Amino acid sequence: MNSSTEPKIETALLRLDNQLCFPLYAASRMLTKAYQPFLLALNLTYPQYLVFMLLWEHEQLTVKELGEKLMLDSGTLTPLLKRMEQKLWVSRRRDPADERSVIIGLMPAGRALQAQACRVPAQILDKLAMSPTEISALRTQLTHLLAQLT
């Protein structure tokens, strides 16, 4: 088939700067990178920080609940939780009501990190240089997008 008979491809659709996925991907990477120095001071990775935010709010959750809230599968979450358990930040135990379910709970060392971690959101807000209204609107849009994709 020669070029005159090939179907015309809409090239504008394939331009990187016309994509929604790329700025979201790049912003996610850059925002996670912005957290790194603050979390490094706490000896935390970003995924560990996310787990802690949920546990500081709920005290204990099942692995399934953590996975649902963080949109992570158990294959990703289990090794992360095992490392957190080795550091004595969390405990893992079978749910007596359902032996298939594993409950993750805060230990004193994990609870103690909360006081230090309270500074992280303000440090990130300083880096973003966005108004609280802008941040709230962006979070609302992203939450809506996530809901559409799940």
Score class of each variant (00 low, 15 high):
M1Q: 09
S3K: 09
T5M: 10
T5Y: 10
E6G: 01
E6C: 04
K8A: 00
K8S: 06
I9P: 05
I9D: 09
I9G: 01
T11F: 08
T11G: 06
L13I: 00
L14D: 01
L14G: 03
L14I: 03
R15T: 08
L16E: 11
N18P: 08
N18Y: 14
Q19K: 04
C21H: 07
F22A: 06
F22T: 10
L24I: 14
Y25E: 04
Y25Q: 10
A26R: 12
S28W: 10
S28R: 09
R29S: 10
R29E: 10
M30I: 01
L31K: 03
T32G: 03
Y35A: 06
Q36W: 01
P37K: 03
P37S: 06
F38L: 11
N43L: 09
N43T: 10
L44K: 06
T45E: 05
P47V: 03
Q48P: 04
L50H: 07
F52L: 14
F52Y: 11
M53S: 12
L54E: 12
L54W: 07
E57R: 15
H58C: 06
H58V: 00
H58I: 00
Q60I: 00
V63K: 12
K69Y: 05
L72C: 07
D73C: 13
D73S: 12
D73A: 08
S74K: 08
G75E: 07
T76R: 13
P79G: 04
L80R: 13
K82N: 14
K82L: 15
R83A: 13
E85D: 10
Q86M: 10
Q86Y: 11
Q86L: 12
K87L: 06
L88K: 13
V90W: 06
S91K: 00
R92A: 05
R92D: 05
R92G: 08
R92C: 04
R93E: 15
R93Y: 06
R94H: 11
R94Y: 05
R94G: 09
R94T: 15
A97Q: 14
A97M: 13
A97V: 05
E99G: 13
E99Q: 11
I103F: 02
I104Y: 04
I104N: 01
L106M: 12
L106S: 02
P108R: 01
P108V: 07
G110R: 07
R111F: 04
L113Y: 09
Q116D: 12
R119Y: 05
R119I: 10
V120E: 10
V120A: 10
P121L: 07
Q123R: 15
D126C: 03
D126G: 08
A129L: 06
A129Q: 13
A129T: 09
S131N: 03
S131M: 03
E134N: 01
L138R: 04
R139T: 05
R139W: 03
T140N: 14
T140S: 15
T140K: 14
Q141C: 13
Q141V: 11
L142E: 00
T143Y: 10
A147N: 09
L149P: 01
L149R: 14
L149I: 15
L149M: 15
T150K: 14
